[in-house]
Design a protein around this nucleic acid. Structure first.
Ligand code: FES
Ligand code: FES
Lengths: 164, 164
DNA sequence: ATATTGCGGATCTATTTAGTCCGAGATAGG
DNA sequence: CCTATCTCGGACTAAATAGATCCGCAATAT
């Protein structure tokens, strides 16, 4: 049971995007430089977030990514499941109906006790992550964080304008 | 995030072993036939449970596996983590200290908010599984289950004694 | 018109998982 | 006491999945 390393990337990127002024965007290259990550691979992950409806993207010069909704309406669960999918890590294969000890179908009306408990556990995991929004995360950061983040991001904004 | 298929195998095998009379054992071959599983591979997983202290094994003729402790003292969590390890699926790599936006060490005294929340979620998952013991699972099975299981297991017990 | 950015697919590699094998050790029977 | 056989134990190999990378296409602001 392992979560992709890129999970941490997108969680932090989403937090970073939440610190921008409404309507502003940051490109994949900017975010990659900010966290020292492989730019092409990070871009792919951000695309997954767009497909999941968490981020919105604008193409063209000065384009980039921004939150698709207010930070208060984006939970950590939505970010994590955009990458890894929402399916439970435990997949019941109805093993009780196979082999010499197979149970008759009439005893399998309800889901297996073990499968039910594993599903409960996954639901508890999801509930915890769904209870925390990006706005909640921002609330515990120092008040100076947004300004710092914005200025550091801008440092990689557009390649130096050739004035000659 | 995915759990090995064999997780379901060992959960059911542990439940099966819990239905035996105290001291009795079942071999890997018996359990494999009971659930129609590849015997050598199942044996490998059961060995992992032995190493984790959940099961005990006896070698030699008429040997096999049995629970290492009373069923009430074995939780689903112990069985699952014996196979997959106890580490969290989310591994924080301290991404906040890398790249252009790296935070100074003085701001990283505490663990990252995101890492803390992910750890909370994993803890909720573990807590749910730790709350259910094998004895609890047996309690919801029909009272006739143990007798049925024992007789079906015995059908594969020892190879037919050559009387000639 | 051009340069910059996101988007999607195809591709390659690495890690994990699934599956199989043979040898060491212990018991039961002779 | 010895032997034969049945068991676990760990090492080894193959397949699948996920990680990571690349390149060409579409869209947009300058
Ligand atoms: S049959 Fe799948 S968990 Fe019991
Ligand atoms: S630095 Fe690892 S989760 Fe924030």
């Amino acid at each position: 049971m392992k979560l992709p390393v890129s999970t941490e990337w997108v969680l932090h990127c989403a937090t970073t995007l939440a610190q921008l002024e409404p309507g502003a965007t940051a490109s994949a290259a900017q975010l990659a430089a900010y966290y020292d990550l492989p730019a092409p691979y990070l871009a792919k992950q951000l695309q997954a977030l767009v497909k999941a409806g968490v981020l919105a993207a604008t193409t063209g010069p000065r384009g980039g990514f921004r939150l698709a909704r207010p930070a208060a309406e984006i939970t950590l669960l939505q970010v994590v499941e955009a990458l890894d999918g929402a399916s439970s890590p435990y997949e019941c294969q109805e093993i009780r109906q196979r082999g010499r000890g197979a149970l008759p179908p009439q005893d399998c009306r309800d889901t297996c006790v073990l499968a039910a408990k594993m599903a409960d556990a996954h639901e508890a995991w999801r509930r915890t992550l769904a209870a925390e929004s990006l706005a909640d995360v921002l609330a515990v950061l120092p008040p100076t964080a947004p300004a710092r983040t914005r200025s550091l991001l801008a440092a990689t904004a557009s390649p130096p304008r050739r004035t000659s």
